[in-house]
Design a protein around this nucleic acid. Structure first.
Lengths: 117, 117
DNA sequence: CAGCATCCTAACTGATACTG
DNA sequence: CAGTATCAGTTAGGATGCTG
């Protein structure tokens, strides 16, 4: 029986614990579609995220090296976010998942309704 | 500015709320690698999942139509799980994500260490 | 063997108020 | 504008005991 992931140091769990939270992938997709964005622009694009969660999400993605954060010494302050090369290298893979979701969403919904009983 | 997901009915959020939990993708990858498996075999393959969460995860995946559940009328009982066609269609996309994780894990770890300060 | 029911904790998330 | 701090609610997840 194949069991190719030890419980520690498992890349599947690791990447998913980051991308699988409520907002990370949405932020990545947004930055990928729009390029460089200011904090408030990201917030407008994802209207129902709280300011706190947007900050937390952006900082986590930055810590992983998926996005970069550039602060301008201006008043009022300006902060710009964009994908790094590492982040960009991930996007085609994410896109494939999103495409699959779009394609098969109807089918999944149909299944769920049947299972509700 | 591109904003291609309404807050409701967003396929990205939907697919991720399912695949992005702690165990779903791990179960899918396990079934994909081993084919048909009994409950206890899945449990052995993913040693540190609790029985409860394994049950919950399997039922959710079944409800979405990604795996099938076949109960044999035997004593002791036997239940076999395997990917459906829908589930199998998802696996190549998941695999690309896993491959990316394996490739870039080192880089991500390096970033995290720097950011801890 | 393959589960379900119950209880419990910790983590995630949101609302609100405040600041450089 | 782009945050931080605090508080409170919700939910994911784990431990345990029991059953067909």
């Amino acid at each position: 029986m194949e069991n190719f992931y030890t419980n520690d140091n498992c890349p599947i769990r690791d990447v998913l614990s980051r991308l699988g939270d409520k907002w990370s992938m949405l932020v990545l997709v947004t930055l990928n579609a729009n390029g460089t964005m200011r904090f408030c622009d990201v917030h407008k694009a994802i209207a129902d995220i709280s300011q706190r969660m947007l900050t937390v999400t952006l900082r986590t993605l930055e810590a992983d090296g998926l996005i970069s954060r550039k602060v301008y010494a201006e008043v009022p302050p300006r902060v710009e976010y964009r994908l790094t090369e590492l982040g960009e290298s991930l996007m085609p893979r994410v896109q494939m998942l999103v495409d699959w979701a779009l394609e098969h969403m109807g089918e999944i919904m149909k299944h769920r309704e049947v299972m509700v009983k």
